[in-house]
Amino acid sequence: MSILSPAIVESLPYLLSGVFTTLGLVILALGLGLVMGIPMALIQVYGPAPLQYCVRTYIWIFRGLPILVLLFLFYFGIFPLLAPDIAAFWIAAVVLGFRTAAYQSEIFRGAILSISEGQMLAARSLGMSRFYAIRTVILPQALRRALPGWTNEYPILLTDSSVCYAIGVAELLTRGNQIVARIGDPMTVYVIVAILFILLNYGGQWIFGRIENRYKIPGYGHGDA
């Protein structure tokens, strides 16, 4: 192993642009997970029994399967039947999103259940409908409470996104491997990739920590004024 060789320095821009692919996957998946996770959580708490059952089955499947199997299933099995021309990147984003949706819905469900019943009673006593009470009283509190758990999905998605290498998405690890194939020196390249992942990981967590702090309500948890 050597100090950065010219060949590696030349490859750095290509590797670094993998950061955008990786972050793109993570952000799309987080968003998709959020959009799916909240309704799924609401169904689990307030929905009719058959729908609850469907959501629970969905969660069971997407939490029970390895990310690699999900990627293979969707990339080789499902998408060729549905939309043969779609790029691996989008398939990967969908799979990561579907999976984190299952975890996120559990996080939101826990947060909703942690809101005291008195909140709903108080809202109804003011003449709010059930739906309106959920939207304006329960959810705003629950989402705040879910924030720490929700941001924890970020490091999980970030590390899992590297598995998208298996279906050829040009994220960080894939690009690293391509560089290794071209110029050799695997250890140096992998160490650089590892450093990038670790920076993204803890850098991202730091940013999420700042966001959590900003949305903290003083004295929150003892009822909302």
């Binding site: 290794v180 590892a194 990981n201």
Partner: peptide
Amino acid sequence: LFFKGCPLLLLLFIIYFGLPS
């Protein structure tokens, strides 16, 4: 911090493809 921050797949590559170098 390292082993939670580094993706497992990358770790496997480091051990199997990287260490031989």
